[in-house]
Write a protein that binds this DNA or RNA. Structure first.
Lengths: 126, 126
DNA sequence: ATCATTACTATCCAATTAGATAGTGACTAT
DNA sequence: ATAGTCACTATCTAATTGGATAGTAATGAT
């Protein structure tokens, strides 16, 4: 059985995996969803939780996640501004997927961390 | 609890998801593994099964998968050459991960295929 | 001699993704 | 008057990924 191509928003996807990654792929989408699954967070809080992310990446990824309805954005009319992001029901559907990937990554980290070059490559907790 | 950075082969990974994707990410690795999980295949068979892949992509991705021990390569001393690729035990560990992503993709395809613009965007089977 | 077969390499180029850096608006506190 | 807060935009550039195209080696078949 051959999976036919799938066209969505002017782009061709060759298989379901590729299509799934359109929604949750890239460096930051899963880490963001993972955090928001724990709790609703403000923009600045997410940024702190993801130490290496830049503003450009954070705001563009939040926008795409919102567009795909995996998160919601709530603005409070205050100064300085307050904006809160929450995961949606659709967003929660990707959590098991993230868990599967994440567990595999953790397993690989332990595997590689213990094997390569004697000393573990996990940097020490501060 | 903050996940510390992880260094592997001179590259920094910020979280387990990113690290996992180092092994199974990119457009072709999962589709290849998925096929090889069904059965051992020759180079040319894999290429036929993945209609849009180029030689460059196929051979480079097979090399990386072999390097990470997710597949094995067996060369037969024949002319014209025959090379067979098989999934390994380690490779089979990623199958549940692929299944999770794939199922999510299939779900999204149905969701979008049925909703957007009336007619489904799944091209008809030939 | 030439062609066909198979599993590749080797280049080059285009597109996408991500990072660095600086700036904005509105109000509040000093 | 100035500085600080917060959630962003706007540019520009660098790096990575992937695609197009052509070529190779060894042998048997015509």
């Amino acid at each position: 059985m051959i999976m036919p191509d799938f066209i969505y928003e002017h782009k061709v996807y060759y298989n379901p995996v590729e299509f799934a990654m359109h929604f949750i792929g890239g460096t930051w989408k899963m880490p963001i969803l993972w955090r928001l699954n724990h709790r609703t967070m403000r923009y600045g809080e997410i940024r702190k939780a993801l130490p290496h992310i830049t503003d450009k990446m954070l705001s563009s990824q939040l926008k795409e996640l919102e567009k795909h309805e995996l998160i919601t954005r709530k603005v409070y009319a205050e100064v300085p501004p307050r904006v809160e992001y929450s995961i949606t029901k659709k967003g929660k559907e990707v959590i098991p997927v993230i868990e599967a990937i994440r567990n595999y990554g953790l397993k690989k980290m332990k595997e590689k961390g213990l094997k390569e070059g004697g000393k573990p490559k996990l940097s020490p907790e501060k």
